[in-house]
Each structure stands twice: as structure tokens, then as C-alpha cells.
Design a protein around this nucleic acid. Structure first.
Lengths: 276, 276
DNA sequence: TCCGCACCTGTAAGAATTTGCAGCTGCAGT
DNA sequence: ACTGCAGCTGCAAATTCTTACAGGTGCGGA
């Protein structure tokens, strides 16, 4: 073991390319039914490696060759950071980003704005909008994905638990019939959220810089100042002197690594430290 | 029809008490399997009434007597607003709020912080924490719920699509065995997210006041001021006089209906007008 | 053409903030 | 007992923000 603990399989996008493919393909279309026990066993995984292994087994048992858990985590330091866990073919991931498919992928667009699963390729029945030239790029993308072993699959949008948005995708190297996928959609949907429940903490550990620890007083002052109160008014509310409120806000501003009370408000809201 | 269009069944908590109970109880434990077609039929519902009727049928077909879709929508005007759709017994809802159960309900606590379903009563196996005195209140709550016809059920956390958090609950007036509920958990989980996908727009229409229209300059100034810049610095950045920046921030503050630059920052962030 | 609106600027008094200095109590860990 | 930290307070100067007054251009819709 040694260095092999923790988030070795939970890597920034740039580094995730180095991951192995992980094709494990014999059994298929098993009758595995996901239930709460499975979710609890996922949650009991103490490392992201164990989680990845557990999901490997489950997704394989459900007849899929690949899966991927990807999150967009809001980080204030420098915009957002994408993190992913799972066993998509490394070559495909590299090609995907190199081709800029992230910006035209209908799966991405769907998962950002919806809560229901997306069957690909060619999911949405009526709303295909073949008019613009992007559809040819999209066709090209799915064609290339197919050549990389991702012929068909299902992507489930993920929201909540501190992620901006995310998705869990299950993919097969064979042409699964729509009926095959549809009947197991509920299982996969539940499994996807179980993965998120179990995995989001690792994503946060790896992606989010540790939150600065603000004291109760500092948070109180920030809360009221964000509500438009002046230092003097907050002093009255908290039963302390105006000078003390200023003091707490100074400390909060320093801990947040920003300059100025306004920036402290903005950052503490975005970091979820206060919610006015 | 006439007045019966739109959000008649999507009401603030205070008014939702007036809703009828809606016990429709003959068939039970049917073999209905939720799939993407069901979700699309929910999304096709053009009013919240139609949506409620469709969910009524589906949840009934799955063997449940009651269901409820409840959301916590972030609104800046006066804290948050809860909205709900569905057919929980009105007497129980009234009693629930009157007894302050909202603040001790383990279902609520779970759905705020997790992504996986909650079986009640007595879901979480090991983490019951029977030590504090609240557990007796919780037992009391479930006992009373049972007397109101909510003997057992399943609650699915809801996140994303512009809601702070929410849940979809399915309840039965009978003592469903754990196995009964577990086998249909994936179906209910998927259905819950389909309800959210279809219903969140009605919740927004009914709950969220229209966003104030801020001009580009006002948003620019807010953005920079949230980053900690002073009016003078922003003036240099935008190539205008400091006075002009002050002017724009004044107008933004007025449009946002708050007092003070700090409150304007806080509100514009929460409303999603700027993201620093 | 007139009106509203976005956008821009100035002056000036007063309120609120930032910043630096100095000091206090109480509590928890070593 | 010593140390560190949260919490608390005062003074004072410099800077920044708020609010009131006053005015300007340019663009698009009625």
C-alpha cells in the first residue's frame, strides 16, 4: 500500500487521462437489482479506490463495460474544477477533450439542465434539432466514441451535495437495444445517486481547498453585514460594541484571503459559509 | 376549466393545507415499471394539475396511497419559500407544521444532506442516535403520522434545477414490508426525479418573483465590487469616473430592493446575477 | 417629436469603513 | 504556569461610501 491510499483514482481531468481502460467483459445483462443495501455498501467504502472497485463490479454485473462519475465543483480560487472517477478508456477521454467535444456534447448539455437520464446516442426523440451544423459534429463524436468502445450508454445527471452539476455515465461496447437499457434505467439511476452519495466527499477532499475556519461571531457578523446592516447595527444586534464587529469582520476578511468587507461577503456566500 | 389552469395545485405551504386528502385505494403492489417513457409523459404535462393527476395514477399503480413533492426554493425577498405539490392528508400537514415537526423530522434532515432514499419509519440502521431526547419526539411523530394514514413510506431527496433542496415522498396507509418497498425503490427514485424535472418549473413560476433587470454596467460594477475593488478602481477598469460607478451601484442597489452596497452584493450573488 | 431609459459626470456634507495602535477576560491544551 | 486563541473594547487618522443636489448625450419606441 504505502502511497496507495485515498484519492488515487479521483484525479483532475488533466491527470485522469493516465488511467487505464479497464475492460472487463464476460458476463452481461445479469439480473442484478440495485437496492438500498448496495448504496450502503458503496457508502461504506473508505477510499475512492474501494468505491471504484465496488462500482466496477456493480456496473459490470448490470452489463456495462465502462462507467464514469464526473463532477463540476465550484471552487472560488480559480473558477471551477472538474473531477472524475471511473474507467472510461483513457484514449477516448484524451481525444474527447482534445477535440473540444466537452462544448458540443449533448450529454453534458442535458445533464446540466435536467434531472432525468439521457440515453445515447440519439436520445431525445423529437427535439433533435438537426438544423444547425453542430449536429454533424455530434454525430461524429458518437461515431468516434463507438470506435473507442463506447457504442451506447446511459448518462444520469447529478445535482446537489456541494457539486455544481455532474453526471454518472454507464457505457457498453456493444449495441445494447433500447429496451435493454430502459428496463434497467431505474437501477442505474439509483446506483448513480448512490455513487454520488458515496463519492462526493472524495471529490471535495481532492478538489476543494480546505475552508477557512471562521468563528461563530465572524459568521454572525458576515451574515448581518450581508443583510445590509452597518457595523453599529450589528453591534446592537449582538450586544457588543461597534468596534468589536469591525474586529470580527477584519479577521473574517483576513481568513478568507480577500481584501475588503464586500469581497468577504461575496466569498463567504459562494463558499456556503453563510446563506442570507 | 376556466380558472383551473396553471398552478392551482402548487401552493405555498400555508394554502396547501386546504387541499383534499385524495385517498384512492384499491389496487396495490402492481407490476408497474417506471421508465423513460413515463418521465416524458410527466414532462409533457402542461399544468401542475395534469402533473399531479399523472403522478397520482403512477404512485397508486405502484401501491402507494399518498405522495408529495416539496421544494425549498431560494428566494431573497423574505428568506426561503417552501412549495409543495401532491396529496398528503391535509389534516396531517396541518398537524405536522403546527407541531413544529419540520425541525425534528429525520426525513427532512436526511434529504437536505444526502442523495439516497430514506425509508421510514426507522430507516438508517446504525446511526439512530437514541441518546438525545429528540428521538422520543421523532417516535411520536411517526406514530401520529401512522394514525393519519401514513404508516410507512419512502422519501427521495431532490437537488438541482434551481431548488435549494427538496424531496418526493411516497406513503402507504398500510404497513408495507421492507422488502416490498426496497424492490421498487429504483422505480420510485427515478419517478421522483421525473416529477422534479417536470414540476420544478411550476414551482419556480409560482414561487420566484421575477428577477430585477440590471443593466450590463450595473452587473459589471457589482462583479468588481464583489471582488473587493473600490469604486475608484472600478472606474479605472471600466474607463469611467468613480462617480459613475457609484451611480450604477446605487441603481443596482435600488433595483435589488436592498439598502447598502454589501446587501446588493449578497443578493445579486444569491439570485445568480453575478458569479465572482 | 417627445418620452423613457441607459449611460455618464460633477459637488459637497455626512456616514461608514479601514487601518494601526493598545489593552482586557476566559478557556483549553501542554 | 505558560501559551494560544476566541472574544471583547477604546482611540484616531485616512479612506471610502452614501446621499443629496445638479446636469449632460444618445438611442429606440409611442
Amino acid at each position: 500500500m504505502g502511497t496507495l491510499h485515498g484519492n488515487d483514482r479521483l484525479l483532475p481531468v488533466d491527470h485522469a487521462l493516465a488511467l487505464g481502460a479497464g475492460t472487463l467483459a464476460e458476463p452481461r445483462h445479469a439480473l442484478t437489482l440495485i437496492d438500498i443495501d448496495h448504496l450502503e455498501s458503496l457508502r461504506d467504502c473508505t477510499t475512492s479506490d474501494l468505491l471504484a472497485s465496488a462500482v466496477d463490479r456493480l456496473s459490470h454485473a448490470l452489463g456495462f463495460d465502462y462507467w464514469m462519475y464526473a463532477l463540476d465543483l465550484p471552487v472560488m480560487d480559480d473558477r471551477k474544477r472538474q473531477y472524475m472517477l471511473g474507467g472510461y478508456p483513457a484514449d477516448w477521454v484524451r481525444h474527447y477533450f482534445a477535440s473540444g467535444y466537452l462544448h458540443i456534447d449533448p450529454v453534458i448539455a442535458h445533464c446540466q439542465a435536467h434531472a432525468t437520464p439521457f440515453l445515447w446516442p440519439s436520445s431525445q426523440r423529437a427535439s433533435v434539432r438537426c438544423t444547425d451544423r453542430r449536429s454533424t459534429s455530434v454525430d461524429c463524436m458518437f461515431q468516434e466514441a463507438s470506435e473507442f468502445g463506447l457504442k451506447s450508454g446511459l448518462s444520469i445527471p447529478i445535482h446537489g451535495l456541494g457539486c455544481s452539476w455532474g453526471l454518472v455515465s454507464f457505457a457498453s461496447s456493444t449495441d445494447m437495444t433500447a429496451d435493454d437499457v430502459r428496463t434497467m434505467t431505474p437501477q442505474l439511476h439509483l446506483l448513480a445517486h448512490g455513487i454520488h452519495e458515496a463519492g462526493h466527499r472524495y471529490a471535495h477532499d481532492a478538489a476543494l481547498p480546505p475552508l477557512p475556519h471562521l468563528t461563530d461571531r465572524e459568521l454572525e457578523c458576515l451574515h448581518w453585514v450581508a443583510a445590509g446592516k452597518t457595523s453599529w447595527e450589528i453591534g446592537r444586534l449582538l450586544g457588543v460594541a461597534e468596534r468589536t464587529v469591525v474586529f470580527h469582520l477584519q479577521n473574517a476578511t483576513r481568513k478568507l484571503g480577500v481584501s475588503g468587507r464586500q469581497a468577504a461577503i461575496a466569498r463567504s456566500i459562494v463558499l456556503g459559509l453563510i446563506n442570507p
